[in-house]
Nucleic acid binder design. Sequence first.
DNA 1: CGAGTTTGACCCGCGC
DNA 2: GCGCGGGTCAAACTCG
Length: 333
Amino acid sequence: MDTAWRGGGRSPVCLDLCVGLSPVRETSAARHELLDRPTAGCGGGGDARRLADDEAKILEAKVTQMSEENRRLTEVITRLYGSHVARLGLDDAASPQRRPVSPLSSRKRGRESMETANSCDGNGNGQKSGAAAEADHAESFAMDDGTCRRIKVSRVCRRIDPSDATLVVKDGYQWRKYGQKVTRDNPSPRAYFRCAFAPSCPVKKKVQRSAEDSSLLVATYEGEHNHPLPSRPGELAAVGSAGSLPCSISINSSGPTITLDLTKNGGAVQVVEAAEGAAHPPPPPQDLKEVCLEVASPEFRSALVEQMASALTSDPKFTGALAAAILQKLPDF
DNA sequence: CGAGTTTGACCCGCGC
DNA sequence: GCGCGGGTCAAACTCG
């Protein structure tokens, strides 16, 4: 299996570099979240969990280092691309993250949609936690049964101070809390938020501490904003965590997509498994562990660097922007 | 005083 | 039909 990651031939690893050009990453398929910390619902005994935790810690350290390199590269890329876009007069802020989503017409409808969305997680309660993540992202589209209307459901995990009782996940948008409830499967209360920036915005957010890790906040977003992100650069930069630009790497292999989010700044890592609707059951966690070990290997890292370089150089947009930026820096001849 | 938060009550779907 | 649980409402409350 490990040879599948590298080797002379075309690697099945598909690298997708996101340099934060859109506030919300777009995905085209329903994505099932599998975080590196196994949950009670995933089966496995305590030994397996401890083993997975140890592996997660090792992986976290390595990913931190990788993320730092990634961050530096991304900053350069973003700067170059930003200047290029600015000169072209493109409007990043109006990036096509906002697909019009009709508001839920009734409580029942919303409930059905959300349950469908949760079913895409492969786990009904959907309260899985992500380890070591300051800001993890997992998004999925919930198919409204029969209507083919898609409700976007995304989840963000944020590491917080366990003593911090606030259920606040800063994401750049304005939220108004409209309820709080203690749910059965989690002793910590769940807070309900609506988007307060635009009254007609259908987006809702649920924030709850992870049942397993009280230092982890899990925010579940439903729907998509029908308005731009509030144009406050500081807040935009705060998405993910303080002062970082959104950056992610997606590694897609054939079959169920395994996505590794190397959210920089703190080495936040999340392994996301994307299921295509409910048709494909999630693979056993053992496969995921193998993937994690694979990702942590030096071979993978070197392959990753090669892929990054390849992805960058093969992107005419990037090369064009890079060339333009270099030309701009050079003195006039 | 207005905006935002809290919190108990209520609504609704689902399982038995 | 009934009870349970998640989600929402809205009055009361807090804060700047």
